[in-house]
Nucleic acid binder design. Structure first.
Lengths: 340, 340
DNA sequence: TAATTAAATTAAACCGTTTAAACGAAGCAT
DNA sequence: ATGCTTCGTTTAAACGGTTTAATTTAATTA
């Protein structure tokens, strides 16, 4: 690198002022068409690199969007991220990603970092126990926030997520219609809105079918494949001998199917298993997993769009936006067969 | 937000100069201890937010590290990223993530974006066909690059990856020692250094055992679960009737095992299957997958460390750094059984 | 030809930090 | 007193763009 090329370098080489260069490079109609072309050509030839931080210092727009979720390696969030990415890409924004692993501190330090970098906005799936002040910190400093996948109590920010209660009731009803009466719920926690909603959907579906709800049939736990795998042991030793399991998500369900397979049981024949999310993995699993499509792409796309719209005209789209889940019936569920 | 709090706001409120405030907040010994405390307290009270882009405009250090890989949703990269993240976190750097999906254009526009943002450095797993100029673009603009997982021809940048040739030969030898003689290789491509190395390792192991190499037994393809699933059909219709498959990675292997399961075949009993990477999924799969640990965490950690060291003292650690893979034997491989 | 208007370009202020150099006050030795 | 340090703080000039009012140049009209 001989020397740093900046606006003034180009300006001198062309005998113009930096103002003209700046305007030309941004296609301002203020500068004559041929001058503009000449400038652009020269910029290219000199290998000019636009200095965003200098610009954003003046304009207070950085083109940076922050995204923070529980765990980007979780395919569920992965699919949301992919949708966000492609939407932001099209509108030439950069995004900065982070995991919070449900640590409120990690999440807050991400928000602070983003503020320091001059982030234009943030899309977040709030960590469990996020205090309202943490999102207000963002909003108060002129950095709008959008929530995805999870909701926050007493918070009117634009929120996009699937209708969990409805989605789980779809899965539960499907099992009931196959004749199952003793249905366990595997995985999940009461600490998130999602967790409460899903349990509620399960409870509602059972009640509606006149089935008594047995709290013992709920096996809460983490939302990982490993957790599903481990939960199989507990499930199999339940005295009520459930014939079906509504799993928290596809990862838990796949882990669970593998877990019961170790005991020689086959999902769909011996025990019916449903997942949630309809990840790519679901249709490949053996047996192919019956699950509920949760509209991840939709959530990501709408959230990104909402944020960019808000930045453009600050038309707030506050409040909750629910995406309607859909049933995907495959081979992991089947007619009830009594367990010995 | 009443008004934007900046150094000068604090300075005025305290009857000091911005210089003192700036120095105090960064714990400079130049300012008296009690003044410093007074300043820090006031900054906290006023809700001051450090403006990094203003600072970095002056210092030309942004604290931003870019990371670009093929696909962050791929757990293999996910594990590398996790290691990079935790290393950068400890040294208070922010990282910006991107997928290139093996598009050279997407990768270049990421590098350009990063330069505009004033990124301090970049860690990349180069897209297939990356021209040397693209990494030079970074280096020439004072943004050091580190390569992970993939190598680039004729490029002496610090590169961290597993020893693929050796790793695959471990897997192949394991199968040979179980009596297998007709071993297919499933997935992968010749277009990456990794691809060539792995095929070479497979070929070497076979030759060393006196087994003739049959090019027909190679089934190249994408490196996804779906691809492994699909490859099972081709595998089963090979005239040579292989008894084992060395799969490109764990995802391909898991897909493959599911694929042959659809034909009623069980990995480890009817056909031996090896994976590569030793992802979390591998030990949960049914049957548990025999695979090769590829040191993802190691790669990520070392790469991040190398970059930060380079930034600190620009001691270049150029050249290739190979991590030695290790065998993980589980249930998806077993003694040869002739296929009918 | 002068006056008027439109088009193209520029000067200068500004964004919020950092930092080298300068400064004033106090303490100390001479 | 005088000069010499030391300590704590301030001044002022960057950093590399954007923006608006002002100015120059060119085109049009009377």
């Amino acid at each position: 690198m001989a020397q740093k090329i900046k606006l003034s370098t180009i300006a001198e080489s062309l005998g113009l002022s930096t103002a003209t260069i700046s305007l030309a490079l941004r296609d301002s109609p203020l500068v004559a068409a041929d001058t503009r072309e000449r400038i652009k050509e020269q910029a290219r030839a000199m290998g000019y690199i636009y200095n965003r931080r200098a610009a954003s210092l003046r304009t207070s727009r950085s083109g940076i969007i922050g995204v923070v979720v529980h765990d980007i390696m979780n395919p569920f969030y992965g699919e949301i991220l992919k949708a966000i990415e492609s939407e932001l890409d099209r509108r030439s924004h950069t995004f900065i990603l982070s995991n919070h692993y449900d640590s409120v501190e990690k999440q807050r330090s991400f928000i602070e970092m983003l503020l320091q970098l001059g982030g234009d906005g943030v899309i977040m799936s709030p960590a469990i126990g996020t205090p309202i002040e943490d999102v207000e910190l963002a909003e108060n400093n002129n950095m709008p926030a959008i929530l995805v996948a999870r909701q926050m109590e007493g918070c009117d920010l634009p929120t996009f997520r699937g209708d969990d209660s409805y989605g789980i009731s779809l899965a539960t009803n499907h099992l009931i219609s196959l004749g199952h009466r003793t249905i366990a719920m595997v995985g999940g926690t009461d600490q998130t809105s999602t967790g409460r909603d899903r349990y509620q959907g399960y409870v509602n579906a059972l009640r509606k079918a006149g089935i008594e709800v047995d709290p013992e049939l709920r096996l809460p736990g983490p939302r990982s494949m490993q957790a599903g795998f481990d939960a199989a042991v507990d499930f199999l030793s339940l005295p009520q001998k459930p014939t079906a399991a509504v799993c928290w998500n596809d990862l838990v369900a796949i882990g669970f199917m593998n877990g019961i397979a170790r005991a020689g049981l086959l999902a769909g024949r011996d025990i019916s298993v449903t997942g949630y999310d309809d990840l790519e993995e679901a249709s490949i699993a053996t047996p192919a997993l019956t699950t509920v499509w949760n509209g991840q792409e939709e959530v990501g796309r709408l959230a990104a769009r909402a944020l960019l719209d808000k930045l453009a005209d600050s038309h707030a789209l506050d409040g909750l936006h629910l995406i309607k889940p859909e049933m995907r019936i495959r081979q992991s569920t089947g007619p009830v067969r009594p367990r010995s």
